[in-house]
Nucleic acid binder design. Structure first.
Lengths: 343, 343
DNA sequence: ATATTTTACGCAACCGGTTGCGTAATAAAA
DNA sequence: TTTTATTACGCAACCGGTTGCGTAAAATAT
């Protein structure tokens, strides 16, 4: 039978040393009013007894958990996992842990998760909105109490809070213009849910580029979906079956763009000469696939780092309502999928 | 100036309703000893007042956090993020949240994280070991107290605890044998850190297959690294510069295998005819790259689900020391990178 | 009508740290 | 030597729920 070890508390230490728990608590925190000898002795005893602090008790009293909540759609997406990695790096450096939940792009789950985060008394929350989300009052729990709240990438216009985004309009404009410069005349667009800022802006950028170059907008060339792998296939198929099919696709993400390339490859349609493709995100895949994918490099990792550091800064100037929007630079990466042979 | 909302507690509810906090607490939990009318009234008042429970207080008293700790090397790796996704799915279904930290493959960080997890009083811990880890006594915090502990994938032999793994030996054996059947005579191996069970077993399987088919083992064809993208390139280069280069590579992960394919492509070396390649994991990339990568499909998501559900099961039969090892099936996926033309 | 059981709730201790305030002991100043 | 300042620590309340135990009131049994 295994020995059952009990939790060691500061009371146990205090009893053994014949001092008060208050002194133990202060000594462990290097409080100035405790002599160096006592402090040293306490720490030594604590170590010997295998003491480990109970974060719950500490957090309950001090109302501080040293935890940052992170609320994303799903963790196993390249963009999200890089984002999280960036958050974790900064958080950890500052002595914070992160608490993750997934909304699975469902508004209801997002609402529940926000409440759970609050109940766990996270010191701040970083959110990338669920696809489904159209209302935002569930975030008032945080804003009403001035608990730091930072939105990243998929951000709401409706809330006054700190936001970290990229210039989706400009990036989409550049991407589309690039296709036009390659000689493409009928450029399709794979769009995401239009109530989400990122997808809305990308479509706007796409439209603006067409307009600038006097290309007609054909609504039949614009499709909407949640841009998954399967959707990429079916949208491509649907477009190529049109009596007047597109000669290029600007996809609002890489996943769907890559499906398009794969579909074309299977059908023997040449990319980029018959169908040029540009994606968005620069997932690791983009450089691997053949032909490699022209795309917009999205600084996911950096975005995470900035979100975390801005969030931690907010805690200092707590009375000020932070509602700054930080726009990060994207990088347009031209690869094989969009550069046509000049025949 | 924004209104500063205070936290509503059960005391606030009790005061407003002129009842005791104990009754409020019980009513909110549907305790049998509280009348239905009171329960209903309390819940209604709680809702109106915007009450949200303080998990810290509850957890402190009840010694239960409804949180599962997850300790991995890094979240932004395909295998890991799928694993986490699986864990999250089961955990969430059972009303648990997950608390994630990264060891970044450093033993020291892993030790710190284990302590932090304990201090946070997670109800259980799921661990995939850091590359660096060679000692394991930091896990005694959990085992000594019979707190559920489950290791996944990279597991220690030295600890008696529940483990979820795949049969790395068999999978590697099958992969290597497949290469032999394709007519490969000089098969190289990209190995990981050999004190980690998964990499050790994969190498063993590789060696066993060679031996079965009376192929000589050439130590020069076996390289060790942490199997990153860059390492994949340099190892491939190094191997191909040998006076007697290999005609195949069995890599212990996909990342390095894909680098090998890319390197070969750049150098004009035909895959698979001049160099056959087999990877391990079946990352999403594997099916995308051209030539597509033959690999071992690793059930990461399912592994996460099983780890979480086994962990939650442990909590019931708490006196029993669970030390079962569950071996999941892998699936050998044959694609283009290993199937030679029969010339 | 009296005794017994059931129902519905309150009291107060508890979980394990944290912290404002008070004070004895020692040191420095007058 | 007396007064004041400093040092080092203890007391006890507190954070916000949870829970064992006790009990008045209502319901049921005798």
């Amino acid at each position: 039978m295994k020995k059952q070890v009990k939790h060691v508390t500061i009371y146990d230490i205090a009893e053994k040393m014949k001092i008060s728990p208050a002194t133990v608590s202060r000594a462990l925190k290097d409080h100035y009013s405790i002599s160096k000898e006592t402090t040293k002795a306490v720490k030594k005893t604590a170590r010997n007894m295998g003491y480990l602090p109970n974060t719950l008790a500490s957090s309950l009293r001090s109302n501080k958990t040293n935890t940052i909540g992170v609320l994303v759609s799903r963790v196993n997406r390249p963009f999200i996992s890089s984002l999280i990695s960036g958050i974790e790096e900064v958080a950890n450096l500052e002595g914070y842990n992160i608490f993750i939940s997934q909304s699975l792009d469902l508004e209801e789950k997002e609402i529940g998760n926000v409440k759970a985060m609050f109940s766990s008394r996270v010191d701040g929350l970083i959110v990338s909105l669920a696809m489904e989300t159209t209302k935002f009052d569930h975030f008032e729990i945080f804003t009403d109490r001035n608990i730091p709240l930072v939105f990243v990438d998929r951000v709401p216009d409706e809330i006054e809070a700190e936001k970290i985004v990229i210039d989706n309009f400009a990036a989409a404009f550049e991407a589309t213009e690039h296709l036009i410069e390659q000689g493409c005349k009928r450029i399709a667009h794979f769009g995401g849910a239009q109530h989400i800022n990122v997808y809305h802006d990308r479509k706007k950028g796409y439209l603006a580029a067409l307009q600038k170059h006097d290309l007609p907008v054909d609504e039949k060339l614009i499709t909407y979906s949640n841009l998954g792998k399967d959707e990429g296939f079916s949208m491509t198929q649907q477009l190529l079956e049109l009596e007047n099919p597109p000669d290029a696709i600007f996809s609002a993400n890489d996943t769907a763009a890559i499906s398009a390339i794969q579909f074309a490859r299977e059908k023997g349609i040449h990319v980029p000469n018959e169908l040029a493709v540009v994606g968005f995100n620069d997932d690791y895949l983009a450089s691997i696939i053949s032909p490699s994918l022209t795309t917009v490099a999205h600084p996911a990792f950096e975005m995470g780092k900035i979100a975390a550091s801005h969030l931690l800064e907010q805690k200092d100037k707590s009375d000020l309502v932070a509602s700054k929007t930080t726009v990060l630079k994207t990088r347009f990466v031209i690869r094989e999928s969009s550069v046509r042979d000049h025949r």
